[in-house]
Design a protein around this nucleic acid. Structure first.
Lengths: 209, 209, 209, 209
DNA sequence: GATGAATGAGTGTTCATTCAT
DNA sequence: AATGAATGAACACTCATTCAT
């Protein structure tokens, strides 16, 4: 028990040191030597706790990332169900405040991890994680529109625009996290931005065939 | 003449090889040895043509970048003059098609250079070049609004939103270049997007004090 | 214990190899590759024990040098106190045998280090260490003469000559170390030389204004 | 004729540029590229005028050095003849002013060359040229004393001391050239120093068997 | 569990020299 | 007589990773 606790503590030191180093230098330029030194550990010790450099990075960013994915998946599922119940998209304007707040809260609860993911994950399996969110967002949108499009003959979705708007949507969160550390401010701003983007979804993505 | 052509060719080979390597791996991870090998040259030869790694990168991206800056500077100057002549912003809606096309054309004429600048310039003097364009764009916008704001007492500009919109504006071009190699398509799309963004400038950035 | 001894031994091998290489080629031309090869080590291993090339050099010469400085500082302090007690410089001729012996003993106890310092420290922080000793020596002399000069109106010190004599004094030790490995012989010779130099201090450095 | 003159001029430019570079960086660290650039020449051109790096260095220092050797050789020859004519060394005190002045004048007429020889000739065939002068000086002294020693039974020369004094003698010139650019001052100082050194020759080098 | 020593391939850069033209 | 392009080995230094202890 005692040694378990100790190990846990040492592992934690390593993770904290790694966060610091990765945030400062990015994945590529971060030095394991330097991380171990910061954590008052030898280089060899690191390899007891983690498989390699990427595994250490993974440890920091993986869980918060998966959780965010789960939050989104759940939301998209709800949206899907919602869409089957309504008959017209303009009828009940979708309120994004709820999901927007949830995302903001989660990101800001794992501030360092997401900053790392967004700015320092080059040469990592996570380097394209933003793209994944963009894809998820776009798919969700398209799925939501499909029902409505049935009632709009002669119209289709411009995939470039839907992709760009998904990109902008995700990017708004990234921009926020990079420019403001205060979660309250972030919430308000992102609600406004999400509302503005709704216009985009309607005016830019739905085009005549 | 013959040897001039040859020299020019070898230098060109080097630049082409460098483009390839830099695009593939980014500035940091690109290896001069690898570049020289691709260009069928020894490492020493590179240093006859270029001062160092950064100079080689510079050779690829610097000129197109400076030209783009010049195009923007000229445009912003025209905008400034234009604003002094009109009395109301809504009166003559600004047409962005012209500048948008110019930018697109220039970027697509130097496709690789801009791709490099945007994706692989970390640890280079160019690593913040996007920020520079965002700043330029925002300044230009604020300058354009200043006159109108005088006739809108009780209103001011939300600097976060103006910054974000400038960011989105610049990002739209970046997104385009990364997703589509066809200049014609790019022109059309960006005109549409620019028009959509005008709404943003008005609805998001002008707020009550 | 065993591994401690081994580690110590490997570090020692490196230092010995470095001494050899530095003595043979000087700091600049010495090759770390060559040093590591001599010590049956890879180049990377060196960087476990030492920060860089200069740190390795430092390890060899720094301690003996600092110790010599301390010996001199102590001696000069004693001289200073001594001078305040006597009334005439010719009255009690200063005996340099003691300090001369101390210096010789210290240098010969760290023979290689001083040889290195004197002949192979170009491009090192130590490259001007001889000048430092010359300055120290000259300052000490001038300080010693100041009291006597008060009783010799119309006289002053010729700074060029005092500097040259300080230079010769220091140089005598250097010359000795470079030409004779036997400490006993060195002691006797340097006593004689120091005595001869005393004449110089009196006849060359004190001049009429 | 014309092209000969041109070549001569280009060669001269190269030598001047080389002097500058060698003086600044020493032989080892001097870069032929840099020298050629200073002389507005291509690297290849240098190899038309000079065999290699050392040959270029040679060109700068060799002639003045040989001339100095000739001056000394002549002087030592005169001394030798002089010694055979006198019966006692104390009888006619040797006046060193003449030779000292000659040496000083020659050195100061080729200031840069000698500075180079003394400070920047490491890794050159000239790196030990000082030793040669010391040897010459010592030999000359011993030769001068031999006659006198015949009349001083039981006495011999202490070779260490004679060597050291020769070293000091030569070093006095070196010290002077490094510390003073004015030839007049140099002349006066070196006469004084030479006189002081005569004492050394007598008191330190002649010892009882 | 953890150490610390060691690896070995890798980095950008410099250099005197060569040689076809 | 001179160019300028090219060589290729050398340099100090860094790194993630390994492994006997």
């Amino acid at each position: 028990m005692n040694s378990d606790t100790e190990n846990y503590a040492r592992r934690g030191q390593l993770i904290e040191a790694a966060k610091e180093e990765f945030l400062e230098k990015g994945y590529n330029k971060a030095s394991l030597r330097s991380i171990c030194a910061k954590a008052n550990m030898t280089t060899g010790a690191l390899y007891f706790f983690f498989k390699n450099k990427e595994d250490l990075f993974d440890e920091i960013v993986s869980k918060p990332l998966e959780e965010l994915k789960a939050i989104l998946a759940e939301h998209f599922e709800e949206d899907k169900e919602f869409m089957t119940k309504i008959t017209d998209i303009s009828e009940g304007d979708i309120d994004h405040s709820d999901i927007s707040d949830k995302i903001v809260d989660h990101i800001y609860s794992n501030y360092d991890s997401f900053l790392l993911l967004l700015s320092g994950s080059e040469n990592t399996v996570f380097e394209n994680c933003v793209d994944e969110f963009v894809d998820l967002t776009e798919k969700s949108f398209i799925q939501m529109m499909d029902e409505s499009l049935k009632r709009m003959p002669g119209c289709e979705i411009d995939r470039y625009m839907s992709h760009w708007l998904a990109h902008i949507t995700v990017d708004a969160f990234i921009h926020e996290i990079k420019h403001d550390k205060n979660v309250e401010t972030a919430r308000v701003r992102l609600r406004n931005i999400m509302n503005y983007l709704v216009h985009g979804w309607v005016t830019l993505t739905i085009v005549k065939k």
